[in-house]
Simulated assay, not measured.
Amino acid sequence: MQTTVTSKSSLSNAATAPRQDDFLTIDDVGKVYPLPKGDRYTVLEGVNLTVQQGEFICLIGHSGCGKSTLLNMVSGFAKPTAGQVRLQGQPIVKPGPDRMVVFQGYALLPWLSVFDNVFLAVNAVFPQKTRAEKNRVVHEHLAMVGLTEAADKKPPEISGGMKQRVAIARALSIRPAVLVLDEPFGALDAITKEELQEELLKIWNNNRCTVLMITHDIDEALFLADRLVMMTNGPAAKIGEIMTIPFPRPRDRSRIMELPEYYKLRNYALDFLYNRFAHDVD
């Protein structure tokens, strides 16, 4: 088993020469926000990343390093100040059903049932389907996340973990090309978090949509990801290094945690975050 870590010095041309099989390309992207009195704040600068179809990518870095900003540009909620984000060769300029986001805060409508929260997305994206077809899609995806029995309940009546399952079912029900996850398990207890990580991995193994996920949890990234993208600190943050996760799939958490390679990778990521790119202490 061999670990591959790509340093930022070898990333400068990573996205400048697109290949025919490139799926998602982040090409020399920068993001600058105007401040009062004419000042400017550079969040991201010179970010290059190429993602192949079906990859599971995790992004990690300290708060303020632009992880959410970067994924907002992939989602179409924000536009780059410099550079370009492309999906299958086409520039991303606005949100679309080919990119679905799951937030940490669930974003469910509390007055609708679990079923109707998912149905709302299916109905919006597939208006040409019959009601029976839409119902089938909703039931299929609720079953996928183990929520068949909770279909008629409303969000205030279910747990946080179940709410996140609804959000994942809703996102997957429209069959997005890219699934964007912004710390989806960050607010959950440790047991529920591990259960949902396992569930997500099973679903991804069956569907193999492309996933971009923000996390602050190195163990979570090592269990889920094909590659771990480690961001430098802001302002003007960029990709510092990319770690290829070598563990074969399907993965067994207890088995990979017994491997010496697991702890080498974990310690390398910890060193990157807390030594080489530690936050300054006042």
Rank of each mutant, 00 (worst) to 15 (best):
P260T: 12
L11M: 12
S113Q: 07
L87V: 11
H62S: 12
L70G: 05
I242G: 03
D219G: 13
S63N: 10
E55I: 05
A177Q: 15
V145T: 10
C65T: 06
Q53W: 01
H216V: 12
I191M: 15
P95G: 07
E220C: 05
A237Q: 10
G38I: 13
N267V: 04
N117L: 13
P235C: 02
R208Q: 15
N207W: 09
I158F: 11
K193I: 09
G160C: 04
D21E: 15
I242M: 02
A278D: 10
T6G: 04
V145S: 05
R249W: 10
H279G: 07
S113F: 14
V180T: 11
K67V: 13
H279V: 08
L24M: 06
G54I: 01
L59V: 12
V29H: 02
K8N: 09
G160E: 03
I191R: 03
A225P: 12
D21R: 10
D28N: 14
F23H: 08
G96A: 10
K67W: 00
M100P: 01
N72P: 15
A221H: 04
N275L: 14
K202Y: 09
A14M: 07
V166K: 07
S7Q: 11
A107H: 13
E157F: 11
V211D: 00
L71P: 10
I174S: 08
L108Q: 06
T3P: 06
Q88R: 15
G76Y: 06
Q84N: 09
A78Y: 07
T50E: 06
V180E: 01
S159V: 08
N135D: 15
R40G: 00
T244K: 14
S10T: 12
V138R: 04
D252C: 13
V5W: 12
P127K: 11
A82P: 00
D226T: 01
G64N: 06
Q84S: 13
S254A: 14
D217A: 03
L112N: 04
T232E: 07
A17I: 14
V114W: 13
K94G: 06
G61N: 05
E194V: 13
Q88P: 03
E45A: 09
V29S: 01
R276V: 05
P235A: 02
C58Y: 04
P248V: 00
